[in-house]
Design a protein around this nucleic acid. Structure first.
Lengths: 337, 337
DNA sequence: TTGTATGCGTTATCAT
DNA sequence: ATGATAACGCATACAA
């Protein structure tokens, strides 16, 4: 596995390594004779520049890190795709890390990214500022995506967590619902906190009930969505509508409704989060809260490029909105409050 | 952004870089005095070893490449998760590339992986041997996962594409279906080819119809599943059952059935591919063909480790099977042949 | 045990 | 335009 080096190329081309290097990295001061000789030798030998050695001399690795909580969550898969495409267009390779919604794995990956000397980092972080001092203190150009850490001086691009939730709650109230169960995300994430907050705010002063009984705090995984649905549906006064804070928990919760023979859209209303294609397949199709994942991914890369080049970057909040479909019909008379 | 180097650590600890290096890389020959001094200095300075420099000296980068066709496909997202976890356990960082079901992007990434000097590569490849000569000739330890390239001397771990399809077709025939439409994967992939082949073989000599009209060749993306469903459902003699070769195409096709007001399970039978959680939410739940993604991912990593250490590795085929659910009921009398 | 010196593959500086 | 050479950060062979 000893790879062919620039020295081999230079030898075969009959020039010095300096000249070979100049040709291969597109330096202007090269004769056309040298150019052809070196290029022939390089392709003939199947030469691949060693990125390690190159980035040792240069200051950049042309590499960015992408740290996500869960690649199996369709939202983050879409995000990864968007980031990766945009980064690739900008000439960057994406080093990907999956934190598995775990703080320890997240820390491990921060270390890895630092060691790999990525030129920048895009992360959907977890926890508070204390846990991120390594990254924050390192000076590594960083952008937060989807999730935000309060008090950290890191530009971010995140969804408007409040508007979508508020619209959803108001929508359900307008349809006659007075007991709206909420399956929340982990409070160690900004999305989890803000969405729960928005749910409470939308309920406060409304005709619908605001009670901690109606809230189950999950962890953005399908199993917790199922657990949440069980808990809420076992309440003495069963909610007439369910709202979940991400797609995986939505899946878990819907599955429980099905098991229990509760027909979504007739026996119980349901609002999911994130516009997963499969949700449109359900019958009735799922009403969801969604924002533009692609815009978030490409925006994150663009923002990171700004940070890397030293331009000032200002955080952005992307709109989110309610997409009304069949799972939230009018509540039949007398069923609600 | 000038990072702190081992030289800084050595200075602060009052030792030579050699001693610092020895301490930091766990070399036995170090005094406890030196150990504590160096370790204190390192943590005090926030030292992170430069992985580039390190792997320039060592022969390994402790990095593996993972080249997948489409991270938005839940099957590959699950696969990525499994690979990444197992690699991480083995002390490897995963560099991830998304080929977007495109040969050009795949080639670009092969180059990137080579340049990054990954210690090994796990790929779900596309195309034929000709397009892969770069990788094949490079000597880079490689394992194919899910997809295979005929004639390439690369160990692989892939699903048994035939059994699942055969079971599905036989199941449909047993339920009375005689016109079974098939939405196939791209013939540039082994999975696409083998599954189509299995479909044809299962039909040959059976009471059901074998005709090229009943086959639509898609590209493993949702849009092509929709196009396939349209084409097949526009046939003069409409199929009574549909079978799709991956989950994304299944989604596209189901969505078309819904649009057309064809109730799956009663108006038309449907068999999907890959056991996506959302498929169990459908009403009726989807009958699918599936194999064990986790086993495939961890198996691929283990196999790659063998190849890297020079042990002989033999290709494995993982079983796939039909999971019967509600979308393929008995055909009502007189509707079929 | 520790330090000195060398090399990994590449690019940049400085002569020529 | 080209070549010799130093330097990037780290790990090791060799000496001490």
């Amino acid at each position: 596995m000893r790879s062919v080096t620039i020295k081999d190329v230079a030898e075969k081309a009959g020039v010095s390594v300096a000249t070979a290097s100049r040709v291969l990295s597109g330096h202007p001061s090269t004769s056309s004779a040298a150019r052809t000789a070196v290029e022939q030798a390089a392709t003939g030998l199947g030469f691949r520049p060693n990125a390690q050695a190159r980035s040792l001399r240069r200051t950049s690795t042309q590499t960015i890190g992408l740290l996500l909580p869960d690649i199996r969550n369709p939202f983050f898969a879409d995000l990864a795709h968007a980031v990766e495409q945009r980064a690739s267009e900008a000439g960057y390779v994406t080093v990907f890390g999956n934190a598995n919604e775990s703080s320890e794995q997240q820390d491990r990956y921060f270390d890895v990214m630092l060691s790999q000397r990525v030129d920048g980092l895009i992360a959907a972080p977890q926890g508070d500022r204390a846990g991120l001092e390594g990254i924050l203190g390192s000076g590594l150009p960083t952008v937060f995506v989807d999730r935000v850490i309060e008090g950290a001086d890191v530009p971010s691009i995140s969804p408007d967590n409040r508007t979508g939730i508020r619209e959803a709650v108001e929508h359900l109230i307008a349809r006659g619902h007075r007991r709206i169960g909420y399956i929340a995300g982990p409070q160690s994430t900004s999305t989890g906190r803000e969405r729960l907050q928005a749910y409470k705010e939308a309920l406060a002063g409304s005709p619908a009930e605001l009670s901690s009984d109606l809230v189950y705090i999950g962890d953005f995984q399908a199993a917790s969505g199922a657990a949440g649905a069980h808990t809420l549906l076992n309440l003495p006064e069963v909610p007439t509508a369910l709202l979940a804070a991400d797609s995986l928990m939505s899946i878990g919760a819907i599955s429980v409704c099905n098991e229990r023979g509760l027909a979504i859209g007739s026996d119980i209303a349901f609002v999911g989060y994130d516009d997963i294609e499969a949700f449109t397949l359900l019958n009735p199709a799922l009403t969801v809260i969604a924002s533009d994942v692609d815009a978030m991914g490409t925006g994150a890369v663009d923002m990171l490029m700004q940070v890397i080049t030293g331009e000032p970057a200002t955080s952005r909040v992307l709109p989110s909105r309610l997409i009304r479909r069949g799972s939230t019909p009018e509540l039949p008379e007398g069923t609600g409050a």
